[in-house]
Design a protein around this nucleic acid. Structure first.
Lengths: 109, 109
DNA sequence: CGACGACATCGACGTGTGTCAATATGCATT
DNA sequence: AATGCATATTGACACACGTCGATGTCGTCG
């Protein structure tokens, strides 16, 4: 199970009551994934595509980062559940996982 | 001007369009402040007080961190605008800045 | 089957940061 | 003024992480 799914099941909203160590650790790990300029730009770039999806080769140039770095960031976001991946032939297409982003948003309440 | 105020004035929601370098950097810096278990627990502990405020000496023991570390985290959150500080005699009382937290929450849309 | 293109993984490097002990600052009370 | 207490600052250390070049893997097309 992806990190954000398990947070959604176990973690109360931030200001609803004192957070335990485990809950705080999990929520912090998820927020850390989001707290990077390259990853924020990746999400906004993927979402800006008319189809709502993008492959790695279309993302490296607008970001000014190398292909391994972009691949790394996408993997990190995939692991926590912030993006979804679909392989089609040689290309790997990524979409923003709106539901999981919404989970994080609602936890800051 | 605190970081989150300037973000609120200049930064569009994450998925509204491609983020520029400066916007992504600012938003990431603000999220990084939140993406730490000690700071998340601090916010939830302060909010859990009946008065909605707390001084440093009431926060070190439930967190299991030293006083300088707690002071450091509060200063970092104060600088970006996530908490407010009010000195009363020897004690410094901190409150959660709900508005600024709301700004961050709405930017993840 | 062989070559090519897209993507993933590995190893290494530099930077950033959470933590603590030690010390400084500032207010209050006597 | 002098002492005591709450908080802030400093310096140092260990660890995490973003980035890159080099290389590996897998699917596609001659």
């Amino acid at each position: 199970m992806k990190l954000i799914d398990s947070i959604a099941a176990s973690c109360p909203p931030l200001l609803a009551g004192p957070l335990g160590n485990n809950e705080a650790d999990d929520l912090a790990r998820a927020l850390k994934v989001l707290a990077d300029p390259a990853r924020l730009r990746l999400l906004s770039l993927i979402q800006a595509q008319p189809s709502g999806e993008a492959c790695v080769c279309h993302l490296t140039e607008p970001l000014g980062l190398t292909q391994p770095t972009v691949s790394h960031h996408l993997k990190v976001m995939l692991d926590v559940g912030l993006v979804e991946r679909e392989q089609r032939g040689n290309w790997a297409f990524f979409r923003v996982a709106h539901d999981q982003l919404g989970v994080l948003r609602e936890l800051l309440a």
